[in-house]
C-alpha cells in the first residue's frame, strides 16, 4: 500500500473532481475551493510530476484552443491506479477518524 502525501492527495482529488477539464489553471482554482488557499503553480506541477512517475495521473496534450491563442493545453487525467490510491487514502482517513468524536477546542 502506497500512501499519498497530503499534497498529492489534495492535487489528485482536484484532478478527480475536475474530470475532463483538469489542467494547471483549473486545478489551482479547484484547490482554492477545497482548502481556501491558492497554491503556487510550481508546487502543483511538482506534485503532478511525482504522481505521473508513480502512475496516478496521465498527462494528455489537448487540441489547440482559441482561448489560448491557438495553442494547446496539457490536461491531466486520473488513472485506475490513481483511483485506487484515492480509495486507499479515503479508507485510511475513515479508519483513522471513524470512531472519533469531533475534536473540541475546550
Amino acid at each position: 500500500m502506497i500512501l499519498l502525501t497530503r499534497a498529492e492527495e489534495i492535487v489528485l482529488l482536484a484532478v478527480y473532481k475536475l474530470k475532463e477539464n483538469a489542467y494547471g489553471v483549473t486545478i489551482r482554482e479547484q484547490i482554492h475551493q477545497d482548502i481556501s488557499r491558492y497554491w503556487a503553480f510550481g508546487v502543483i506541477y511538482k506534485t503532478l510530476k511525482k504522481m505521473r512517475d508513480k502512475g496516478f495521473v496521465d498527462k494528455i496534450s489537448g487540441d489547440p484552443v482559441a482561448e489560448r491563442g491557438g495553442r494547446k493545453k496539457y490536461f491531466y487525467r486520473i488513472t485506475p491506479e490513481g483511483m485506487k490510491a484515492l480509495e486507499e487514502i479515503f479508507n485510511v482517513h475513515a479508519s483513522l477518524w471513524g470512531d472519533m468524536q469531533p475534536i473540541s477546542m475546550d
Binding site: 489542467y23 494547471g24 503553480f41 510550481g42 506541477y45 489560448r68 496539457y74
Partner: peptide, 15 residues
C-alpha cells in the same frame, strides 16, 4: 517541459 506548460497556464489566466 515544465516551462511550456507553466507559460501557457499563466498566459491564460493573465489574459
Amino acid at each position: 517541459e515544465d516551462y511550456e506548460e507553466f507559460l501557457l497556464d499563466l498566459e491564460e489566466s493573465f489574459v
